[in-house]
Amino acid sequence: MERLTAGWRRTEVRGGREWNVQPVSEAQAVKAYLCPGCGLDVEPGVAHLVTWRADGVLGDAADLAARRHWHTHCWRIGTL
Results as ranks from 00 to 15, higher is better:
72 T>H: 04
5 T>C: 07
28 Q>E: 15
68 R>N: 02
11 T>H: 00
63 D>P: 04
73 H>D: 09
77 I>A: 06
8 W>L: 15
51 T>D: 03
70 W>T: 09
8 W>A: 15
72 T>A: 14
64 L>I: 10
29 A>K: 08
7 G>F: 14
3 R>G: 03
79 T>L: 14
24 V>K: 06
17 R>F: 04
28 Q>P: 06
79 T>E: 14
48 H>N: 13
9 R>M: 15
16 G>Q: 02
10 R>T: 15
12 E>L: 01
78 G>L: 05
54 A>W: 01
6 A>S: 15
49 L>A: 00
69 H>N: 10
80 L>P: 01
21 V>K: 03
58 L>T: 12
67 R>Y: 01
36 P>D: 08
1 M>I: 07
4 L>T: 06
28 Q>S: 13
51 T>V: 15
41 D>N: 06
27 A>E: 15
75 W>H: 01
38 C>Q: 00
53 R>S: 10
32 A>G: 03
25 S>A: 10
42 V>G: 05
57 V>C: 05
40 L>C: 08
5 T>Y: 08
64 L>Q: 11
34 L>V: 11
80 L>W: 10
73 H>Q: 06
57 V>I: 06
32 A>P: 01
77 I>G: 05
61 A>H: 07
78 G>C: 09
74 C>I: 13
6 A>K: 13
64 L>W: 03
60 D>K: 07
72 T>L: 00
20 N>G: 00
54 A>K: 05
28 Q>I: 12
64 L>F: 07
54 A>Y: 05
49 L>E: 05
80 L>R: 10
4 L>I: 03
10 R>E: 15
37 G>I: 03
9 R>A: 14
50 V>C: 07
11 T>N: 01
76 R>Y: 04
80 L>F: 13
71 H>G: 05
68 R>M: 03
44 P>D: 13
58 L>N: 02
6 A>L: 12
48 H>E: 09
60 D>F: 06
43 E>V: 15
